[in-house]
Design a protein around this nucleic acid. Structure first.
Lengths: 178, 178
DNA sequence: GGCATTTCTTAACCTAAGTCAATTGTATTA
DNA sequence: TAATACAATTGACTTAGGTTAAGAAATGCC
């Protein structure tokens, strides 16, 4: 990639600022961005009846989007909400398309990007697959301790697919074990 | 893609035959293939202590691989096993790499492929996220009835993350409702 | 500081799913 | 045809997690 290309790329991003609890995307909308998280943390979730199901936390260095909506141009079913004051670098799919015409190896970059996303998704899925809630919590504790530190237990419970009360009991049980 | 390219591509695949219960990949091995399922059905699973956790069923028209092992060159943690007599078209990552050098837009094809894989993975994850076992079963019944027809209830239970006995009870409960 | 709001914990009770053990059903094959 | 193996169900009992409601701790705000 030439210097001119890099400059082109940098100039294509728009800075977005979100307050805590502000939404980047709401279900029913079309997702028209890919965002790089520069500062802050967000949750992606969807509603299952009364329940909110958190699918993912995105923080510094991560990319956040609803790829399903973005790539198929269908309405999104997920909500993306900032959990802290958050700063994002946003780019539109049209702009990405344009860049692709000018920058060599662009598709290769895209391929590697999606390969990585897929691997992360597979890893994330392991956490979900039918361990007991306690084991899921311990796994999260070991593998993603940063999330535990930055996010309320309420959100962690929604991520683990259990009630906050249950999480509280699990934590108590674990504390008494050690 | 030219006719010559297509021919090149076709010639790169090796036919693999598996009997029912034979393994395409065992955990601990390196995954060195991407396979197109021509006929048959396979399950991908890993072992969690004593339990087998099925992550995915692959059948006619699907691609099957352990992308994590394939792309990172690390030992696989998953097992891929045929559940019926199965015929696969297999290609090695080296051969794919070679083809990439000769076929225009190859990276684009790869990108679109992984985009699709990611979307499917996201969809699959929804099934997992903390619905009750009964709702997960009903969802599977509605969205993937073919799987139900082809695979033993034992396997379905392992896919849903419950015991076969529980699945049996759920089925009984549902039958009496209607 | 004091008041409100959100976050977290606790308790009593209920339900879904796990466990263990036995039984029935069904293919396969000797 | 019995004999074996595997698949599915059933029952009695236990346990993890949901439900509801209340209280404690932490946080923000005037």
């Amino acid at each position: 990639m030439t210097e001119a290309n890099k400059e082109q790329l940098r100039a294509s991003f728009i800075v977005k600022q979100l307050q805590s609890k502000e939404y980047l995307l709401k279900s029913g909308e079309l997702c028209k961005f890919e965002c790089f998280v520069h500062k802050g943390i967000l949750r992606s979730y969807y509603c299952q009846g009364e329940e909110e199901r958190i699918t993912h936390f995105s923080m510094e260095g991560d990319w956040v989007s609803d790829y399903n909506s973005l790539l198929t141009k269908q309405k999104s079913r997920i909500n993306i909400q900032a959990l802290e004051e958050t700063e994002l670098l946003s780019i539109s799919p049209e702009r990405l398309e344009e860049l692709g015409l000018h920058i060599p190896n662009w598709d290769r970059v895209g391929r590697l990007f999606f390969e990585k996303q897929l691997r992360e998704k597979e890893k994330e899925m392991e956490l979900r697959i039918a361990l007991s809630a306690e084991k899921r919590y311990v796994k999260l504790l070991n593998e993603e301790p940063i999330i535990l530190k930055r996010v309320s237990l309420n959100m962690i419970a929604k991520y683990l697919g259990i009630k906050a009360e249950s999480l509280s009991r699990i934590r108590k049980r674990l504390a008494s074990k050690k």
